[in-house]
Design a protein around this nucleic acid. Structure first.
Length: 589
RNA sequence: GCACCCGUAGUGAAAUGGAUAUCACAACAGUCUUCGGAACUGUCGUUGGGGGUUCGAAUCCCUCCGGGUGCACCA
């Protein structure tokens, strides 16, 4: 429709002797100003120094002559400073409902057809807790993956995990100190225990303060020793603990991915990319990298004043994170030579050095330059007035004083929903499933409703809302619409998008439904799920308002089949939209 | 110090350079409605300060103030 209107305007301009003008056709913010709007008169006025309102009237006069060929357009008006507003006809809206009901692929587009894209996200580390940050990255990554898929891309999901390094040594030190947990514990409980052991080790590793002086902790020596053993695998006892702990944390992560609705195609481990990265660095010393104080470094600022120097191989000969990142990128492209795009999603604290790594890699492989893209998201921040302790250190505390991890937030939220559904007449399995779906929805929506770049305020009391601007509100609207459909079925009222029955009322929901594909395209182009989240909340509100003010199922009402068709269309769009956010749409909740 | 990101009602957010800056939460006032009250209908209230560009700025430029993150052997 947008294209049609654009062509119509171009035709009118031609008649007026105006050509090659850059103007936009868009939805006005407020439906009062029509369904589409253009700034063409204002742009022309600027170029030809004319009064925009007069020019707008002139253009509209010409447009009206051609309007007969466009039955979808009911009215054209001049408004405001010189906007030309288009109001679509009931015929158009009835047609759009029919389109949604008949076309399975209504929301799909082909902009990324046959493009191979790998999306890397989540990236938790074995032996460490699953943080809230991992929850954020997962929600954003999964949603972006699904949005790209709906644009036709061939998407694979990747997860990169630090299976070696100091953090593992810290956890193993803690495990040796406290002993292995009771074997009867659940996987999640064992994983939590390992996380606690990590915290213990990490706490003891730092220097000890004696007055003004700092002294190296004796534990540091022990942990460094364990770290070496992990690398060279010479200690059978440590190997055994390592293998056990690795398996437990990885299994616990898998349980979380199942609840979150993510299925990874590839798992990369630091240990397997370190060597690839190291080879690249060593092969390019003198060309890209330099030796300095015994280390191998990359001087980013020599290539771009906004970059800085980073160490790639330490003076003790160990590859750093940067080098592993280099190896990871190389591995991805090697196993997937036809890949068009490699997306990596992380928190924005990694933005600066990822830029350095990307620069170094593009100097070695020029062909990768345009195929790598790093998307960063904000951090969890404490909302003003909220009560939580220890946030500054990156560890949020709940009221009970326990550390709030991503895993515990998820668990607590699901428990909260379970409380709400405990009196439903469902079996236990169904209650559990619905609780998980609604709990995940609450968390994911609160992350995805805002643009990816910014921080997300966290308030333990209010973060997980079930009302208003929330995931469960969307699910509730969907479930409610399904109940309406069920009732219609019971009364034998079949959906019919054609029946107008002399009724030319157009509901607000209809004015929003046909816009869904545009929203999806924009989200895909900008890698921004929040456009979909915002759209769905507006759509749900419009539907609930329709529901509240109209009797949909009514045998006496001749327009009832149309209203049922509209309800169907709403459920189709809502279900697809929720899917794109990585949220399930239960029929009942 | 340098670099990057950010500053919008009491709170949390939205707004491809466009119209009277939108939405939710909170607060306040209603609806107790048939199809699910996890709802609906209202009221209240906002672009950090100062310049500039533009017909038009929350958006672009400059500057000041305030916050976050990153800057050599951690990841």
């Amino acid at each position: 429709m947008q294209e049609k209107i654009k062509k119509l305007i171009e035709g009118a301009l031609k008649n007026l002797g105006i050509e090659e003008i850059d103007f936009v056709v868009e939805h006005p913010e407020d439906l009062i100003n029509g369904d589409y709007s253009t700034n063409v008169a204002m742009v022309c006025a600027k170029n030809f120094k004319q009064n925009p309102k007069e020019l707008a009237e002139k253009i509209v006069g010409t447009l009206r002559q051609a309007q007969g060929e466009f039955p979808e357009i009911q009215e054209i008006q001049v408004a405001g400073a010189g906007f030309i507003n288009f109001f679509l006809s009931p015929k158009f809206f009835h047609g759009s409902i029919e389109e949604i009901l008949n076309n399975e692929d209504f929301a799909r587009n082909r902009t990324l057809q046959n493009k191979k894209i790998m999306v890397e996200y989540t990236d938790p580390n074995p032996f460490k807790p699953f943080h809230i940050g991992h929850l954020m990255t997962n929600a954003i990554g999964e949603s972006i993956a699904r949005i790209l898929e709906s644009s036709g891309a061939d998407v694979s999901r990747a997860n990169y995990q630090g299976d070696i390094g100091l953090h593992v040594a810290k956890a193993i030190w803690g495990l040796q100190k406290r002993g292995l947990p009771n074997p009867d514990l659940s996987t999640a409980e064992k994983a939590n225990y390992i996380g606690e052991c990590y915290s213990l080790g990490a706490g003891e590793y730092g220097p000890i303060r004696l007055g003004d002086e700092e002294k190296e902790s004796p534990v540091k020596v022990e942990i460094d020793e364990i770290n070496k053993k992990i690398y060279d695998r010479t200690d059978a006892k440590i190997n055994k603990i390592y293998e056990w702990g690795f398996k437990v944390t990885m299994e616990a992560f898998e349980d979380l991915y199942r609840i979150l609705g993510t299925k990874f195609d590839f798992y990369f481990l630091e240990s397997e990319v370190a060597q690839i990265g190291e080879n690249i660095v060593r092969d390019n010393v003198g060309k890209v990298f330099k030796e300095s104080d015994g280390a191998i470094i990359f001087k980013g600022e020599e290539h771009d004043p906004k970059l800085h120097t980073r160490v790639f191989i330490t003076s003790t000969g160990l590859p750093t994170y940067e080098t592993k990142e280099l190896g990871l990128a190389e591995k991805k492209f090697r196993m997937n030579p036809n890949m068009n795009l490699s997306l990596v999603i992380t928190a924005n604290e990694q933005a600066d050095y990822m830029r350095v790594v990307a620069k170094a890699l593009s100097l070695i492989h020029l062909e990768y330059t345009d195929k790598m893209r790093h998307i960063t998201h904000g951090m969890m921040r404490l909302a003003r007035g909220a009560t939580a302790e220890g946030l500054a250190s990156g560890k949020m505390s709940s009221r009970k004083g326990n550390v709030v991890t991503g895993e515990s937030l998820l668990r607590d939220t699901i428990a909260l929903v379970s409380e709400k559904v405990k009196d439903r007449e469902w079996d236990e399995e169904k209650k559990k499933k619905i609780s998980e779906q609604v709990g995940v929805s609450a968390i994911k929506y609160s992350i995805l409703k805002q643009s990816t770049g910014g921080d997300i305020a966290f308030d333990f009391e209010k973060s997980i809302s079930f009302e208003g601007d929330s995931g469960p509100y969307l699910q509730y609207s969907y479930a409610r619409a399904n109940s309406v459909i069920e009732k219609a079925r019971g009364e034998n009222i079949l959906p019919d998008p054609h029946l107008q029955a002399g009724n030319n009322v157009v509901f607000e929901v209809e004015k929003l439904l046909y816009r869904f594909p545009e929203i999806v395209s924009r989200s895909a182009a900008e890698y921004e799920p929040h456009y979909i989240a915002n759209y769905l909340i507006e759509l749900a509100r419009a539907f609930n308002s329709f529901y509240g003010n109209t009797v949909i199922v009514d045998k006496e009402d001749k327009t009832s089949p149309y209203k049922v068709a509209l309800t169907f269309a709403f459920t189709f769009v809502m279900k697809k939209g929720l899917h794109l956010l990585g949220i399930e749409a239960p029929e009942k909740m």
